[in-house]
Structure formats: structure tokens, C-alpha cells
Design a protein around this nucleic acid. Structure first.
Lengths: 149, 149
DNA sequence: TCATTTTAGTCTTATATGCCCTTAATTGCA
DNA sequence: TGCAATTAAGGGCATATAAGACTAAAATGA
């Protein structure tokens, strides 16, 4: 008889998603306490835009390994609150250039202590070296080109 | 002057969430191809219920490191499609006992080849040993008791 | 040039996630 | 015993995520 393996115990996706929920709650809680009114994903998007400069939605989606439709949806509240500006590209009118506004930069600063607190608390418990190993491992995972079909 | 660190590059939450999106797409795609009509989270919930037996929503939430409300929301489509049964506990009428139905077990079986394909593809590219390391690391992350406030 | 194909982004729909507040039930304690 | 505090779950709200269909614009190629 075929031994029925314990799928949840060995599923790489299940484990990764579970850890993601846990760490997101930590960062979201600290971010909320900072009063910036930003969620983890929003903080990431603004952080990327600050660091990398203006980007098209496609570029942003690729940078974050995110679906292009998802980026569009996630930008909606940020644009509504004037934290990002979305303009039609002059060189390709299909593309939209997303850039962070002064208000967005200001919100990032307000949220930074909250982020730093979460980052410090995580590394205090998990270890800074382990955290670095994890980030590198996550980069490797996100970098895989899966062959579908 | 304070050196402006590149937050997205060192943020543990950002890295983990990004990898999670990527691996979820792999598993969701393979699961969809299998024709089970299950998403990654649904496959996990049913897998846990099959392996661990009936659970209250609280227990299920704790098992999956998921918010109590989230479990409730995620069970909705599963209950609607008769993949799980939700009954009031006889010993505590506040609690709801969730159990997998025969239809749920059947769907799990239908999805299993899709899951196995995703699991195999991931480990082919990432390495089975690295995958095991990652799962253990993710367990460690999910097991941390963060001190809030 | 102009028709075909490809590409960027949107809209719709569905699930995923977690917060706050409320309701109902249980537990603990005076 | 009786009431306060606690606990389990539901409802409402907002964001997160992505597939699929669609629109518009650009690139391609005969």
C-alpha cells in the first residue's frame, strides 16, 4: 500500500506562506504603531521607488516579483493618498511611469522607526546572521525561472 | 550625515513576501492544471484537516499561524463547495468543529499530482537539501514569539 | 504602408489576509 | 449563586494577490 505522506509537513509553499503571514504581522503591527498608515507591501513599494527612482508598472512588477495587475491594484490607494504619482510615459504611451511624491517620502520617514523596530525585533530573535542567510535564500527562491507545462 | 540604507534590500519581510509570491504562483499554476479547482491555501487547509483530523477554527488558525478571522473567511468557499463541514461543538457551543468531507478528500487526491509536480519542479531547481533547510528555517520563523509593544 | 502581432495596463472576479467591533457562550471569582 | 472578565466566532472594512478578458498603443514584417 502507498504510504500517505504528510503533505503539509513537507510542502515548501505551505511553509513559506505560513512564515510570511507571521513575519508580516510583526512588521504590519510595528508599522501601524509608527502612525505612517502604511502596510508592509506599501512600505516596500515606496521604498523601491525611493531607492530605484521612477519605474514603469512592468518594471516595478518585475522588481517585486509581482503580477502586473497586482501592482496596479496596490498602487491605487497610494495614488489616492498622493504618495505616488502615475504619469503616461512620453516615449511609450502604453506605459505608466510611477514615482514617489514628497508626501510619499515623508510617510516613508514616519514609518521608518516602526520598520526598524520590527527588523530589530526579528533579528534579535532570529539572529542577524540567520536573517542574512534567509534574505539570500529568499532572493534565490524569487530568482528561479520555473518551467511550466 | 546619516547614510540612507537601502531598506528593500535588507528588509526580511519584503524578501520573504517576494519569495512567497513567486513560489505560490508555481504551486497555484500546477494545482490549476490538475483540475482540482484548489488554490495553495485551500490545498493546505484540506491537507491539514486530513492529516490532523477535525479541528476548531482556533486550533486550525494556530496550526497554520493564521488569523482567526482569516481562517473563517478562507473556509467560506470550501464550505460552500462542500469540501469541509462546519459544526457547532457539543462541549463548547461557541466553538465550531471543522472537518474534511469525502468530497474534500476526493479533491485533495485530484490535486495531488499537481502539487507533486510543483514540489518536484521546485526541488529540481532549488535542490532537495536546500528545500529541507528552507522548510526548517520557515518553521523557525513561524515559531518565533514576537514581543509587541 | 498597412495588417498582424506583441506589449502595457485596466477591469472584473475570486480568493487571501488581518484589523476592529459585536455577539454569544464559558469561565472565574467574589 | 450571580456578575464580570474572558474567549470563539461572525460581520464589515480595507488591502494583497493573481488569472482572464479587454483596450490601446507600439513593434514587426511583408
Amino acid at each position: 500500500m502507498a504510504i500517505d505522506i504528510n503533505i503539509p509537513a513537507v510542502c515548501n509553499c505551505t511553509k513559506l506562506r505560513r512564515a510570511q503571514r507571521h513575519i508580516t504581522r510583526l512588521y504590519d503591527t510595528c508599522l501601524a504603531e509608527s502612525g505612517a498608515g502604511l502596510r508592509a507591501t506599501q512600505f516596500s513599494i515606496l521604498g523601491y521607488l525611493k531607492t530605484e527612482g521612477p519605474k514603469t508598472m512592468m518594471e516595478l512588477a518585475e522588481l517585486m516579483t509581482m503580477d502586473r495587475a497586482t501592482i496596479g491594484h496596490n498602487l491605487r490607494p497610494l495614488e489616492r493618498d498622493s504618495l505616488v504619482r502615475i504619469a503616461v510615459s512620453e516615449t511609450d504611451r502604453r506605459a505608466r511611469i510611477v514615482s514617489i511624491t514628497d508626501e510619499g517620502l515623508s510617510r516613508l520617514e514616519i514609518g521608518k522607526p516602526g520598520w526598524a523596530k520590527a527588523q530589530a525585533e526579528f533579528e534579535r530573535q532570529f539572529g542577524a546572521e540567520n536573517a542574512k542567510l534567509m534574505r539570500d535564500m529568499m532572493d534565490d527562491v524569487a530568482g528561479i525561472s520555473f518551467s511550466f507545462h
